[in-house]
Amino acid sequence: MASLAAPRRRGRNPLAAEDFFAGWVFILPALIIIGGFILLPILIAAWTSLHNRNTIGNVNEFVGLDNYRHIFTANEDFRIALRNTAWFSAVVVPTQTAVGLILATLANRKIRGKTFFRTAFYFPSISSSVVISMIFLWLYQSNGLINFLLQKLGLPTPRPPWLANARGVFGLAFDAVGIGVPTWLEGPSVALVSIMMLNVWTTAGTMMVVFLAGLQDIPGDVYEAAALDGATRRRSFFDITVPLLRPVILFVVTLGLIGTFQVFDQIYVMSAGGPAKTTTTLVFLIYTEAFKSGRGLGYASALAIVLFAIIFVLFLIQRRFVGRTEER
């Protein structure tokens, strides 16, 4: 075999060299763009994170891992931001995935006005997040639409109003039944939960579109066979739709995880990290440290690398749990 294969390979050598060259030429544009605008900045950020470098750039000294040491041992804001982001992700990712799946299942049915509903649900996702955030800013005001409707229904409204309320929702719930709780049991603030709701509302549409594509890949005869076997609609949803959608769910959860850990624009527009830092997320903290704290770009880069590591580890973990398609 080897003696047969070797001369053939040698015989095709000039052509192979040409292919090799042509191949590189074809991927060169992508290589330059990915290398220059993604890979290189990541490497520069990693290198910068080992420096004490102010934003203006006249101070730039190598400090090794000092920035990382400070982040993990001395930066109270980092712990606050990590906690806020974890809450944000823990609430938003499952909710938007569930809502997206339900919407997709509904929009996949043969109902009248299907296209209208699909468009309506997807609309928030394609609108500018800044514009949507501004609209929600008005809705959440003390004299805004949400409070107006609550008052009409005779329900209590929060004081301070939604986005200015730093009280934790668990703390408030415990207060309602007359139990005082320590600060660490307070949970995410009313302001953060308000922004979570906005985020679920805008992102569920995107997830719906992805789920719709996944649903349409499931052959109809599987459902027919199940129906013949006497499966209820509920049973076929949980035992056919959900398992067959597993790769799509992995994709949606991964996108959701990355998106929620990188949330910035809604926070910047609606609450600027306040009140009392209860909506300061990791990316908002990176922005603050880079431009407002005087710690500068080296420190902010270190935070960005830490964020990257967190997302990466979380992705690996959830791939183990959600992505077990091969085993089935």
Binding site: P160, A164, N165, A166, R167, T183, G273, G274, P275, A276, K277, T288, K292, S293, G294
Partner: peptide, 22 residues
């Protein structure tokens, strides 16, 4: 002084916490 902008941010957060009843 130097770092005043950061202190202003942190101080606002503390005052907001106070006004939220914390």
């Amino acid at each position: 002084g130097q770092g005043g902008e950061k202190f202003n941010l942190d101080a606002d957060a503390e005052l907001q916490a106070l006004f939220s009843g914390q």
